[in-house]
């Protein structure tokens, strides 16, 4: 059976959820799934991948530093060795750094940020957003290796209960660029792209000093990230890493709460695939209400503290 190779990201020996989703997407195609994992903790992470559908796992170990070009060349070598018909990574910062290089080394184009992947008539077909999701294209590839990245939070991370044969091999050293330091986010703060719940704020919060209200709501929900509209990022109220929309990040959380965001077309494009959308805005005619499942007409500063309290109470029960 032909093989689909998945690049699995890990952090301190724990595979990242987006990569487990990617493994599940691979397994759902019916192809035989192999995984490759790199970096410090790779062997530990490799051990758990059989449960998510990998039947073979290659752990690349012993690199002195993380180098995307060295990792990509090792991953491409694994793909060649396995005769992989397809290669997948998740569309995270790391996946987007590695996958295009692997694709180029395999002289194959890349289909990025796919939201669906199916096997149709002996070939793989992906759905990917154009214009940040204003349109959805069904695409395939005539490349020697079908290379794609999968959008986080779209595919389920389903356990298969299987086991994998794990082999370790030495990673290449000495890439052309390598990571010399990492300043890890404090307190496990979630990124908007990966968080199951995103609470975003816009101009309606009236100033950067009021965003603690949004952070408190995010904390009340539990595993939630804070996001922001382009307007407030451009105004310098919030960091760009939080920006949701066509010139920021496209997100698909299970719950998206837009607070004080009117809903410019470029913002809607970035969050319209969220499973449930809540909008809070004092303008009842704001475009955000047209795509919201549940709308609350009201002033953000007035409503947020009460909502935070009510959400915390509901979760405590």
């Amino acid at each position: 059976m032909s093989t689909i190779l998945v690049f699995v990201e890990q952090s301190h020996g724990a595979p990242r959820r987006a990569s487990l989703e990617c493994l599940s997407a691979a397994r759902a195609t019916g192809l035989s799934v192999a995984a490759v994992v790199a970096g410090e903790g790779a062997e530990q992470a490799a051990a758990g991948l059989g449960a998510f559908g990998a039947t073979r796992v290659v752990a690349l170990t012993g690199a002195a530093r993380w180098s995307a070009d060295a990792v990509a060349s090792d991953v491409a070598a694994v793909a060649r060795e396995l005769g992989a018909k397809a290669f997948l990574a998740s569309a995270t910062s790391t996946g987007k750094d590695i996958a295009p290089r692997v694709a180029a080394l395999l002289d194959s184009t890349l289909l990025s940020d796919c939201t669906a992947l199916t096997a149709e008539g002996g070939t793989l077909v992906a759905t990917r957003p154009w214009l940040a999701g204003k349109a959805l294209a069904k695409v395939t590839s005539t490349a020697p290796v079908f290379c794609a990245t999968t959008r986080p939070n779209v595919f389920p991370a389903a356990e298969s209960g299987g086991t994998a044969e794990v082999v370790s091999r030495p990673a290449s050293n000495g890439g052309r660029a390598s990571v010399s330091a990492v300043a890890e986010k404090s307190g496990g703060k979630l990124d908007v792209k990966e968080a199951p719940i995103v609470v975003s704020g816009g101009r309606g919060l009236r100033g950067p000093e009021n965003f603690h209200l949004l952070e408190e709501l995010a904390a009340a929900f539990g595993s939630a990230a804070t996001g922001a509209s382009r307007a407030v990022v451009d105004a310098g109220w919030r960091p760009h890493a939080e920006q949701v929309g066509q010139t920021g990040k496209t997100v698909s959380p299970k719950l998206y709460v837009a607070v004080g965001i009117s809903g410019a077309i470029q913002h809607l494009a970035g969050m319209r695939t969220s499973k449930v959308i809540v909008a809070i805005n004092k303008d009842a005619d704001a475009p955000i209400f047209k795509i919201a499942d549940f709308g609350l007409v009201g002033d953000a500063l007035e409503v947020l503290p009460a909502l935070t309290k009510a959400v915390a109470a509901a979760r405590a029960r």
Binding site: K134, A135, L136, V139, T140, G295, L296, V303
Partner: peptide, 23 residues
């Protein structure tokens, strides 16, 4: 190498509702 098979607009979201006003 990429071949576009079809392109469509995302499905319209089911109309939601305003659950209330203010506090």
């Amino acid at each position: 190498q990429a071949v576009v098979l079809s392109v469509e607009l995302p499905p319209a979201r089911k109309a939601g509702r305003i659950v209330g006003e203010g506090l």
